[in-house]
Amino acid sequence: MDPATEPPSRSTCTSCTFLDDFSNYWTAVMYFQARNGTFMRAKQLGSLFHEAANGGITIYYFDAPGGYNITAFQKGFRMRNGDPTVRDKESASRFKGITYTCLARPDTRYTNVTSEELWPEDESQPFLWSFGDRTGYGHHGDYIFGWKGGSLQRAFDAKCKPILNCAKLPTQEISVANTCTKNRTVAEEVDGWLDELPGGVEVLG
Rank of each mutant, 00 (worst) to 15 (best):
R109G: 15
R105C: 08
S91G: 03
N69E: 09
S93K: 11
T111H: 09
T108V: 15
C102M: 13
Q74E: 14
Y110K: 12
Y68D: 15
R109S: 08
G66Y: 02
R94F: 08
R94H: 10
E116G: 07
T99K: 13
G66E: 01
T111N: 15
T111P: 00
G66P: 02
R109E: 13
K75N: 12
E117V: 10
T101H: 14
K96M: 12
F77C: 06
T85P: 03
G82W: 01
D122T: 06
K96Y: 07
E116T: 11
I70L: 15
G97P: 09
E121L: 14
T114S: 06
N69K: 10
T85C: 01
P106K: 07
S115A: 09
D83P: 02
T114E: 06
R80A: 04
P126I: 03
V86N: 04
D107H: 12
K89H: 06
L118A: 05
D88F: 00
G82E: 03
S91M: 03
N69H: 12
E116S: 11
R78V: 08
D107W: 14
P120C: 02
E117C: 08
D107F: 12
T101N: 15
K75S: 12
P106N: 09
D88A: 01
R94E: 07
T101A: 09
Y110G: 10
G66T: 02
S91L: 01
E90K: 08
N69D: 10
V113I: 14
N112D: 07
R80D: 03
K75A: 13
P106C: 04
F95R: 01
R87K: 11
R78G: 07
S93R: 13
F73D: 15
R109C: 13
T101E: 15
F127I: 04
T108H: 13
K96W: 08
G66R: 05
E90S: 11
Y100G: 05
P120K: 00
N81T: 14
R78L: 05
T71G: 07
E117Y: 09
L118E: 00
G76Y: 02
K96I: 08
P120E: 03
S93I: 02
T71W: 07
T99L: 11
Q125M: 15
I98S: 06
F77A: 08
Q125L: 15
F127T: 01
C102F: 12
R105W: 10
Y100S: 07
G76T: 05
E121V: 09
T114A: 10
A92T: 04
A104C: 11
D83Y: 04
Y68V: 15
T114V: 12
R87T: 09
F95S: 02
D83T: 01
P84K: 11
N112G: 06
K89L: 04
S93T: 05
T71V: 09
F77W: 04
S93N: 07
L103P: 04
F95T: 00
Y100I: 05
I70K: 07
T85R: 05
E90G: 06
P126D: 00
K89M: 06
